[in-house]
């Protein structure tokens, strides 16, 4: 199996505070990699390092390498804008733009010049909504405000918006934490489908979710990667006592 993203000796600092220490993680193509750990353990920081969304934070600094298809994304020659098109992101709270359903999906393709208005764009919007398992629910209300959708639909709309720019990788930062159990299940089902086409990295607080959807799981603790292995193995037979304490403590 191909490694899509290879993280090598990656450190991350906010000013003097070291948020990530010596990360080494292989992220497999067309698989779901889950990152678990307590709040403040660095998993979200790590996720945002993968598309360099941390760049905008004053005083933030990265060391080491993150290779996407063998090329270091922290190379000074890398175009961050282009990188972010290849590595999309879905956020914790459903956050559609306060525009129509259609315009939300069309935003990315429009600014990237992938399609103009008209039939090509309509086609792109439909494909993306289908890809996010939302088309049937919204096909008659594409001009409605996205804010009128329910939270689960909004989150799938955000996923449609992300896949509309045709990324290789989708990062998900606790994508279900604001959703009810039914909506959570629909998003989880969608993630399994998306994994056939995309490489997915998901940060989650919910260990059952990690166990349900992911192929690989990494356990973060105080800015370090304690354990990384296949999900079944990590939950069934954790190698590290810390991992075991965490997953059993949370289970009870």
């Amino acid at each position: 199996m191909k490694t899509k993203i290879e993280v090598r000796d990656f450190d991350f600092y906010y000013g003097d505070f070291q948020a990530l220490k010596g990360m080494n993680i292989p992220i497999a193509e067309h698989r779901i990699t889950a990152l678990i750990g307590p709040s403040g353990c660095g998993k979200s920081t790590f996720l945002r390092s993968l598309n360099r969304m941390n760049d905008t934070i004053p005083g933030a600094r990265a060391e080491g390498e993150i290779l996407l298809d063998g090329k270091n994304i922290y190379d000074p020659k890398v175009d961050v804008v282009e990188l972010r098109q290849r590595i999309g992101m879905v956020f914790q709270r459903p956050n559609p733009f306060p525009q129509s359903v259609y315009d939300n999906v069309a935003f990315g393709p429009r600014v990237l010049g992938m399609a103009k208005r008209g039939r090509a764009m309509d086609e792109m919007v439909r494909e993306s909504l289908e890809g996010a398992a939302l088309w049937n629910e919204v096909k008659h209300r594409l001009d409605d405000s996205a804010l009128n959708l329910n939270p689960g639909q909004q989150q799938r709309l955000c996923i449609a918006r992300t896949i509309a720019v045709k990324p290789d990788v989708i990062l998900m930062d606790e994508p279900c934490s604001a959703l009810d159990p039914v909506a959570t299940l629909s998003v989880e089902d969608l993630m399994r489908e998306l994994a056939e086409e995309y490489t997915i990295v998901i940060v989650t607080h919910n260990m059952q979710q990690a166990a349900r959807v992911s192929d690989y799981t990494g356990f973060f603790w105080l800015g370090e990667l304690v354990e990384f292995s296949e999900t079944d193995e990590l939950f069934r037979a954790p190698r590290e006592p810390l991992t075991e304490a965490y997953i059993t403590g949370r289970r009870g």
Binding site: R84, Q85, R93, F107, V111, L112, R161, T162
Partner: peptide
């Protein structure tokens, strides 16, 4: 958040401001 999302979709800073 709107800026963050727009940037994460590969829009430039100016496109984010403009659109």
């Amino acid at each position: 958040e709107f800026r963050t999302v727009s940037l994460s979709l590969g829009a430039t800073k100016w496109q984010t401001i403009r659109h």
